[in-house]
Design a protein around this nucleic acid. Structure first.
Lengths: 349, 349
DNA sequence: CAAAAAATGATTGACGTCGATCAAAACTCC
DNA sequence: GGAGTTTTGATCGACGTCAATCATTTTTTG
């Protein structure tokens, strides 16, 4: 019942503790024959090294870094908050975390930060990624040095990371479409979409998922080509204001950020407004839900993602397999299933 | 930077390690004056005992028990699966788990299981609860012996548990109502509700939340009194079949279980069907979503709940404060945001 | 003020692992 | 078969805590 120790393994393999230790921590200078015997004994006994004891022994500290885009984007502020909050609690378990702000969506900036990291001893990094192949080389270098790399929210080149932690954005778009479709109750309609930029992969993916479902399952709803906003609230507000003055739109869907502008425009408008779906639950989208200016928020649960990032990074660093974690799915918020407002609560404190 | 050790505390307090140890592990035989000094030093240095080292030292094993209702209920099977799965991974970290099946929704059965637990040395239990005050005494006894008790999915008497892990069922009902309301796109309608029993607190709560939102925000939708089903698929199928033969129902909402019956009836029916909302994502509700027999599933994410139960129990047992965990909210599933089907995947393997 | 009781100090051996060191044994190779 | 190399064994002292023991000091009590 009690887990076998390395001494047990050594005994079973017929070698000394020292040799077993050399194999387990591959320190070299061990004959293939002995190595073989030890590996067999490990398999036979089901030995798993006690990470707590190991960490205690060497006084290990896990050094993690999170690279997230700079700027005043409410969503990334929320991400940042969650990282800090989680880091506080992990501190006592030997995890130190550094949050590195990177110039938003600029490959060069990210590249630079990665190079800076190369010189330091870091155990794992989570990166809000860019698909650019320009990153491949430095990421490969980092990983060659044993650094665990995961993509967060937005993926990196597949070969450059051990895992991607984020939602499926096509599914997110499809989900939005489903709700828009259902909201029409079989009646015809016309949806105006908004996007920051078609170069942002997540925006493009959401749009394609959105289109796909509406075309297939709700053909009586027209989908208009997206208005490009650069995620700028000012642009969104102006465009939305103009739009809302014309009747005929039965739904609005913004795949990108800058929702405060959209919400401001909706707030001004009188009378029946179109069905509105946006992404990411932050202070203003939350309030807009409560005040009925919008109907739905599709959220990627950054709290769950951050949680997962920590867990995955530790598992990668410890080279153990992943414990069960909640699945990541695009979450639909209406005004009735909002979580307690932790951020607001914190602000008060 | 490195955490202070108990030796540091002892030195700071001007007492010996032995005395500091006596205070920390309250072994008694220590003068109030010394005790005071030690506590002050603890506060001053911010000492937190190293749980990994402590567990290593005493070879601690956390003994947990989960009490869940017996029977072939798909939802509880899912719960059971998650417990087993999580337990496997926790095993190597010194956690043993026992799942105790209790006669469904019978206070006596639960009571009996609790009494049986009284004799054994258990560190924590999670109970799919009953609100009954009959349980208060045995729960109080257990807790007096230092057993951590949390309510799972369905709450226990408030004073009898340290935490409740489950969704707010009123919010769940409100959420269902919101989606039903939105699906009517401003048109009038008529919803038939189904419930297992009004004595089940979660059923009653969901219904009241459902009613509340529809009456307040969608007064043009009629809510019919619930058909009582005892969560029996046969009953549901018969009732639904009958219902579907009449036109005029624009939505169906089942707050309880037994959905396979409802789905079977929907499957038989031809033509346009009402908007359908049910609770809990399990094999058949998942399939029904995919095959478009129903529109929405409100789920309480048992995977998240189980995860949380383990985390909370450990925190209670270790007497440390709670690490950040994902919020528990009623989750809305449509056919486009379903998680990967872990259970099915497992069945195959 | 002496005897009993209570509190404290000092110390030790676990727990399982790491990262050493040093000597002894087992091999190569010529 | 002797020098050199590689591989082993044995052992030690951390890491921070727990759970002991035993001797000593301090306090209480009659």
């Amino acid at each position: 019942m009690p887990s076998p120790t390395l001494s047990d393994v050594a005994r079973a393999a017929g070698v000394s503790y020292a040799t077993a230790d050399r194999v387990i921590n591959n320190r070299g200078n061990v004959a293939e024959k002995s190595s073989e015997k030890v590996r067999k004994a490990v398999a036979a006994l089901g030995y798993v090294r006690n990470i707590a004891a190991a960490n205690l022994s060497r006084g290990r500290i896990y050094k993690l870094a999170f690279l997230i885009p700079q700027g005043s984007n409410a969503f990334f502020n929320r991400i940042h908050q969650h990282i800090i909050h989680t880091a506080e609690h992990q501190q006592r378990e030997g995890v130190t975390v550094e949050v590195i702000k990177v110039a938003a969506f600029a490959v060069e900036g990210l590249q630079e930060s990665l190079l800076a990291l190369l010189g330091r001893d870091i155990d794992g990094i989570a990166i809000v990624g860019l698909q650019s192949t320009a990153l491949e080389k430095s990421l490969a270098q980092l990983r060659a040095r044993g650094v665990a790399v995961v993509g967060l929210v937005s993926d990196l080149p597949q070969t450059s990371r051990a895992a991607y932690i984020g939602i499926d954005n096509i599914a997110a778009g499809r989900t939005a479409a489903r709700t828009v479709g259902l909201s029409h109750g079989g009646h015809s309609g016309c949806v105006q979409t908004f996007a920051g930029s078609m170069e942002a992969r997540d925006h493009a993916e959401r749009l394609s998922g959105f289109r796909e479902v509406l075309e297939a399952d709700f053909p009586f709803i027209d989908v208009l080509d997206p208005i490009m906003t650069k995620d700028d609230p000012i642009v969104l507000q102006a465009q939305a204001r103009e739009l809302l003055s014309h009747p005929g739109f039965t739904a609005l869907y913004n795949v990108g950020a800058g929702n405060s502008g959209l919400i401001a425009a909706l707030q001004e408008a009188k009378g029946k407004r179109p069905f509105c779906v946006v992404h990411e639950l932050v202070a203003h989208s939350r309030q807009a839900l409560l005040e009925r200016h919008i109907d739905l928020v599709i959220d990627q649960r950054p709290d769950v993602e951050i949680n997962r990032a920590f867990t995955v990074l530790r598992a990668l660093i410890d080279e153990k397999d992943l414990p069960p974690m909640p699945d990541l799915v695009p979450t639909i918020y209406v005004r009735d299933n909002l979580p307690a407002d932790a951020l607001t609560d914190k602000m008060k404190a």
